[in-house]
Amino acid sequence: MADGDITLALPTMRVAYEQGALTEADLATTWHEQLQRWLDAARQAGVAEPNAMVLATANAEGMPSSRAVLAKGLDERGLVFFTNYTSAKSHDLMATRYASATFPWFAMHRQVSIRGTVEKVSAAETAEYWAKRPRGSQLGAWASPQSIVVNGRPALESALANVERRFADAETVPVPPHWGGWRIQPEVVEFWQGRQDRMHDRLRFQLTRDGWRVQRLGP
């Protein structure tokens, strides 16, 4: 197929959303219980990386950027992911203190979007998660100058080899001082269920002065 044919095909690419519905009566009492329900359903359905979410941030000048990260914590306080604190995303978060994230479960015709302020998780929470990471991932966190320009793949391999030698005799690898977790503290959480004829169900938990309020949005 020629490139022109691919471009012409885009307007005709369409999926019929007919896998379910979402009513107010379906919702859990809290946003985090509802999100946990859908995460569990995605995992049971065999969705690849069901905890993968697209994290969006903006820098101090308002320039947005997004990338996929893995959610590693969920409770009434918010949604947690871990990263290098010197990364581009962390610089954005330190500058604005806001983020949004979306779980795109395409196979289930569902998505969940979260928006709110952010905070660093405690050192104890970071250490607890760090201990559960494979040793290779721990070494990679020490070796990677995340978001920094590097002089080719060999430079990364060399950095990892140096870290492997550094901790060769260590039974446990310590948490790097530049690494840890961020928690998104939601102000808005929207649950989206695809429906036939694009009449989707959109139910939103909105944080107000009086607590959480559930609202239905037009599709």
Rank of each mutant, 00 (worst) to 15 (best):
A56H: 07
A56Y: 03
A58M: 10
A58R: 14
N59S: 02
N59D: 15
N59R: 11
N59C: 07
E61C: 03
G62C: 07
G62H: 05
M63Q: 13
M63S: 05
P64S: 11
S65A: 08
S66Y: 00
R67P: 08
R67Q: 12
A68F: 04
A68C: 12
A68E: 06
V69M: 10
L70V: 13
L70T: 05
A71F: 00
G73L: 01
L74D: 00
D75W: 08
D75Q: 09
E76A: 15
R77Q: 14
G78C: 11
G78M: 12
L79A: 01
L79C: 09
V80F: 00
F81L: 09
F81E: 08
F82C: 02
T83Y: 12
T83V: 13
T83A: 14
N84Q: 11
Y85F: 15
T86L: 15
A88G: 11
K89V: 06
K89T: 05
K89H: 14
S90W: 03
S90A: 15
D92K: 13
L93I: 12
L93H: 07
L93D: 01
A95M: 14
A95P: 05
T96I: 08
T96H: 10
T96S: 13
R97E: 11
R97Q: 15
A99R: 02
A99S: 10
S100V: 02
S100M: 07
A101C: 13
A101D: 08
A101W: 10
A101V: 11
T102I: 13
F103H: 08
F103R: 05
F103T: 05
P104E: 09
A107E: 14
A107G: 07
M108D: 02
M108I: 02
M108L: 15
M108V: 00
M108T: 05
H109V: 00
Q111N: 07
S113Y: 02
S113M: 10
I114D: 07
I114C: 00
I114G: 05
R115P: 01
R115Q: 10
R115S: 07
R115Y: 06
R115N: 02
G116Y: 03
G116R: 04
G116A: 01
G116H: 01
V118T: 13
E119T: 11
E119Y: 00
K120E: 07
V121W: 02
S122D: 07
S122P: 01
S122L: 11
A123S: 11
E125V: 05
A127N: 12
A127Y: 06
A127L: 06
Y129G: 08
Y129P: 05
A131F: 03
K132F: 00
K132C: 04
K132H: 03
P134N: 04
P134V: 03
G136F: 02
S137P: 00
G140M: 06
W142L: 05
A143G: 04
A143T: 03
P145E: 09
P145W: 10
P145M: 13
Q146R: 09
Q146K: 08
Q146I: 07
Q146C: 06
S147C: 06
I148R: 15
I148T: 09
V149Q: 11
V150C: 06
N151L: 10
G152N: 03
G152R: 10
G152C: 05
R153N: 07
R153C: 01
P154L: 08
A155T: 08
L156A: 07
L156P: 05
L156W: 06
E157A: 08
E157H: 03
E157R: 12
